[in-house]
């Protein structure tokens, strides 16, 4: 059963930081659950951060049961925020796993190339999340030991490759000149038409 997303943490945080808050607003592109108006400098316009809660499919909980939200829903929510004039659109999921899945899907969508870099605008977030929501690239995520093991494996493979799959040109250079001559004369003889073949060789 899908649980209701509690946005109190986001509301409390806003009070701490002193941002202006709007709840359940609709600028004409669909409902936005929370909007923070972040004032960074008196001379600069406010930065609008919107939070859109991703809910389970109407009439079922298909999306929430396996901690996966459909791409369609993620795209729609992100563009709802963009069309509403928000600078950042955070998609709020029920829990950390779902939030990570949402962020991963946004990264995946951006990695395929598009007219808009969705990953610079949108991100998955869980209401109680305290750790960084940005998906860490595998190069940074992988432990150092694993990196060294893979490096060694690659070196060993390269060594074997060099030993047994030496390129043809290199092998030829090392051949004895006499053997090379014999081989060339054989190739020459076999490549001629039958009536032009030298006799007695």
């Amino acid at each position: 059963m899908a649980q209701a997303v509690n946005l109190d943490a986001l509301i409390d945080m806003r009070e701490e930081k002193g941002f202006k808050l709007e709840r359940d607003v609709d600028y004409g592109a669909g409902p936005i659950d929370i909007v923070w108006n972040v004032n960074v400098h008196p001379a600069l316009p406010n930065i609008k951060c919107g939070f859109v809660v991703l809910k389970a499919e109407e009439g079922g909980n298909q999306d929430t049961e396996d901690n996966q939200l459909s791409l369609r829903k993620i795209e729609e929510a992100a563009f709802r925020g963009i069309r509403s004039g928000l600078d950042k659109v955070y998609l709020v999921a029920e829990n950390d796993d779902m939030a990570k899945s949402v962020s991963g899907k946004i990264e995946w969508l951006a990695s395929h190339g598009s007219l808009i870099r969705l990953d610079t605008i949108s991100l998955g977030l869980a209401p109680e999340q305290t750790e960084q929501a940005v998906v860490t690239p595998s190069q940074k995520r992988m432990p150092q030991g694993e990196k060294i093991r893979k490096q060694r494996m690659r070196e060993r493979e390269a060594k074997l490759e060099k030993k047994y799959n030496r390129p043809k040109g290199e092998r030829r250079r090392r051949e004895h000149p006499l053997k090379k001559g014999i081989m060339e004369s054989r190739v020459d003889r076999h490549s001629r038409p039958r009536n032009q073949k030298p006799k007695g060789t």
Partner: peptide, 17 residues
């Protein structure tokens, strides 16, 4: 519906239309 418009625009932009 606004959601179908959002969805259509998203699909088009993400598919390099």
């Amino acid at each position: 519906s606004n959601s179908s418009i959002n969805e259509g625009i998203a699909r088009a932009m993400l598919n390099l239309i």
